Computed example of a mutant assay.
Amino acid sequence: MPGKNIRMLMDKPLIAHSIAQARATGLFAAIAVSSDSDEILDTAREHGADLLIKRPDELASDTAGKLPAILHALTETETRLGVVVDYLIDLDATSPLRLPEDIQACADLLTETGASCVITGTPAHRSPYFNLVERAPDGTVHLSKQLSSPVLRRQDSPECYDMNASIYGWRRDVLRDDPKVFYPDTQLYVMPRNRSIDIDEEMDFAIVTMIMQQRQAK
């Protein structure tokens, strides 16, 4: 997760942006925003979120996982609305360069394939079969993954993808019964690199801001 300072800098405008993206798809019966911050929830209210979900303390620490917070938001949503949802789509505010079309495509992939989960990614910048290495305790390095025959050109290595943390989708019953991301039938929706930057530090935020400004100028 981004550090506290960069989170304070970016969270409010990016939450508003994520709500607008969700609304633009016309897909959602309800748009919920989950946060431990009253300021973030106030921003969400101002920009039309249907449900504001305050996270309990145990889900608001720097060591808290993503899935427990999503399950809490799912439970709160269903309780408040008095419904049981069929699907859940998570839009991570720190990966805002997706388009509404990407959200729609992920929803289509989830429903048309019957998959338990859909994630998003982009072609990997490094290959674990060619130029991604691990360091052993003695300081020596080796390729993260090795095939029976060495890969002489990166183009010949198996296709690999970086998860971009932009969109996650689940079938509700699967997530409720077995909360995780990687099931035997998890599907991948591939996005281009220029829509796949996940903000983790100030440089990422600067790049995303520049790209978004260029989009608005067109």
Rank of each mutant, 00 (worst) to 15 (best):
A64W: 00
I89Q: 06
G114T: 07
N131M: 08
A73Y: 10
E78F: 05
I199M: 10
E39D: 15
D36P: 10
Y183D: 07
E159Y: 00
D102A: 07
I19C: 07
L143K: 13
M8C: 03
F130D: 02
D162Q: 09
R176S: 11
E58V: 10
L59R: 02
A32E: 02
P179E: 08
Y129L: 05
V174I: 13
A22W: 03
W170E: 00
C160A: 12
S166D: 08
A22R: 01
V181G: 00
P192E: 06
A32Q: 05
T63H: 11
Q155G: 01
K66T: 13
P56H: 12
T25W: 02
L81N: 03
V208C: 08
S18C: 13
L71I: 14
K4W: 08
V208I: 02
Q21S: 11
P184D: 11
D57F: 09
E39A: 15
Q21G: 04
D178K: 11
T113V: 08
Q213T: 09
H142P: 00
T113R: 10
D92H: 08
I167K: 01
E112G: 03
V190Q: 04
D162F: 06
L71R: 12
A107M: 11
G65L: 09
A60S: 15
Q104H: 08
T111H: 03
T209N: 10
F205K: 02
A217Y: 03
G121A: 05
D42A: 15
T209G: 05
Q213F: 06
A93P: 03
L51T: 06
L152C: 02
T43D: 01
R55Q: 14
Y129P: 04
P56C: 11
D86V: 01
V84C: 04
T140S: 15
A124G: 07
Q213K: 15
A105H: 13
R153Y: 10
R195N: 08
I70Y: 01
L132P: 00
P192D: 03
P128V: 04
I6N: 07
I167G: 00
D38H: 13
T77Y: 04
Y189W: 08
T77D: 05
L81F: 09
R172Q: 11
S196C: 06
P158H: 07
V174C: 03
A20E: 14
D92S: 13
S157I: 05
P123I: 13
T140Y: 02
P179Q: 10
V141L: 05
D204K: 00
Q187V: 02
A64C: 09
V33K: 03
R98Y: 09
A64F: 02
L132N: 08
S37C: 05
L51S: 07
D62V: 10
R55C: 10
D11T: 14
D108F: 09
D162S: 11
A44N: 08
R55S: 14
A217R: 14
L99P: 00
K145I: 04
P2T: 14
P96H: 03
S37K: 08
M191E: 09
I15P: 01
A49T: 00
A20Y: 03
L188S: 03
K218S: 12
S166L: 06
I6L: 13
E201Q: 14
L188P: 00
L9N: 08
I31V: 15
S18A: 15
R98L: 11
D50A: 08
T43W: 01
